[in-house]
Write a protein that binds this DNA or RNA. Structure first.
Lengths: 212, 212
DNA sequence: GTCTATACCTGGATAGAC
DNA sequence: GTCTATCCAGGTATAGAC
C-alpha cells in the first residue's frame, strides 16, 4: 500500500477526526500518531495535508467557529441579535468544550473568527453604538461565552456531601450541584445573558438614545 | 551533595517557582525536570514534596485562588460586593493568565475555590437572593471573569492592517486593537461588569423586592 | 532529602522507498 | 499520498546509594 489510487485522507476527514478525538478525550489526547491511527493511517501521512500539528488545531478551531450563526445582526434588533448570537456561540463551544482553551487563546488570524468579529462589530455600529463600545461589547460577550463553555461551574463539585458540609457552611447542598450540572450551567448562562443585555440597554439609552 | 543539612526545597518554594514558570512560559513549559532545574535541583527531588505533577498544579491553582478577596460579602451591599469581588477575582487570574484553563476546569476540591464559592453563595443568600439564583450568579460571574482572563480579546489581532482591510469591511481598524490590547480588555470587562450588575439589579427588584 | 541511574513511554517531525 | 525507518527531545516516575 504505497500510493493508493484514491487518497485515503482529506483535510476534512482529518479535521473531523481531530475534533472527535478532542471532544472525546481532551486536547492532550490529540497527537499526530493517535490521530493517524483513528484514521487508519500512519502518523507521517498527515504531513501531506498539514504542515504541522498547529495547522490541524487551527483548522479544527476555525471549523467550530464557522458554525456560529451571526446572521441575526443583519435581520434583528441589536438586543435580539446579541441574545441569539450568544446562544449560538455558546452552543458551538459547549459541544466542543475541550478545545475552548486553544480556541480562546488563539490568534486573530482564523477566517471564521474574523468574520464573526466583523459581523458583530458592524451590526452594533450600524445600530448606533459608538465604535469603541461596539468593540467592548464584542469582547465581553466573548468572555462570557468562552468562560461558560470552558468551565462548567457545577462539574467541579463532587457527589460527596461530607466533603462540603464540614467546612463550608453555606455549601451544605453543594453535592446536589453535581447532579444538576447541565441545568445549573444553562440557568446561569441564561440569567447572565439576560442581565448583560438588560444592563447594556441602560447604557444604550444613556449613550445613544440621547442623540438627535 | 547527597543529603543536605537543610532542606533545599519546600512546598512553598516549589509552588512559587511553578507559578513563575507557568506565567513566563505557559502551562506546557511546566515539566518536573524543568521546574527542578529552576530550583537548582534534579527532577526526582520534587517527589519528596508532592506525589505527582498534578498535585503541584493544584497547589498553584489553590494559591492563586486564595488571593481573591471575598471579604466584601460580609461588609458591603451585594451589588458592591459583586463588583469588588469581580475585580479582585479578575486581577488574580489575569496575573496568572496561563494557568486559567487548568484552574477553570479543575475539580471543586481545592479549598480556596470552595471557600470562595461558600462566601459568595452565603453573601447572596443573606442579601435575599433565592438559593437557586445565588448559585447561578456565582457561576455566571465565574464565567465572565474566567473568560476575560483566558482570552484577551485584543491579543488575537495582528498589527498588520492589510490582513483585515481586504476581507473584513468593518474591521479596517482592527490592527489598532493590538496596540491597545490592555485597555480594550479592561474597558470590556468594566462595561460587562457594570451591565451584569445593573441587569441583576432589575431581576432583584422583580424577584426579591416584591416580597414583604 | 537529594542524588544518580534508569526504565519506559510518548511526542513531533524528516528522509527516502514505492 | 502513504509507507517504513529513524531521530531526537522530552515526559513521569521508581530504585537505591549516600
Amino acid at each position: 500500500m504505497a500510493r493508493p489510487r484514491q487518497a485515503l485522507l482529506t483535510r476534512q476527514r482529518i479535521i473531523d477526526a481531530a475534533a472527535a478525538l478532542i471532544d472525546a478525550e481532551g486536547l492532550d489526547a490529540l497527537s499526530t500518531r493517535r490521530l493517524a491511527t483513528e484514521l487508519g493511517v500512519r502518523g507521517p501521512s498527515l504531513y501531506n495535508h498539514f504542515a504541522n500539528k498547529d495547522e490541524i488545531l487551527d483548522a479544527v478551531a476555525d471549523a467550530i467557529t464557522s458554525k456560529v450563526d451571526v446572521s441575526f445582526f443583519a435581520t434583528h434588533d441589536w438586543r435580539d441579535a446579541l441574545r441569539l448570537w450568544g446562544r449560538s456561540y455558546r452552543q458551538a463551544l459547549v459541544t466542543h468544550a475541550n478545545i475552548v482553551p486553544y480556541l480562546a487563546q488563539g490568534p486573530g488570524r482564523r477566517p471564521a473568527a474574523l468574520a464573526m468579529a466583523d459581523a458583530v462589530y458592524g451590526g452594533l455600529v450600524k445600530a448606533g453604538w459608538p465604535p469603541a463600545r461596539a468593540t467592548h461589547i464584542g469582547a465581553l460577550m466573548r468572555y462570557f461565552v468562552a468562560g461558560s463553555a470552558l468551565g462548567s461551574f457545577a462539574r467541579g463539585f463532587v457527589e460527596d456531601p461530607q466533603l462540603y458540609a464540614a467546612h463550608y457552611p453555606h455549601l451544605s447542598q453543594a453535592h446536589r450541584l453535581a447532579e444538576h450540572q447541565q441545568s445549573v450551567d444553562e440557568g446561569a448562562f441564561a440569567l447572565g445573558l439576560d442581565a448583560l443585555i438588560a444592563g447594556l440597554e441602560q447604557t444604550y439609552e444613556r449613550v445613544v438614545g440621547s442623540l438627535p
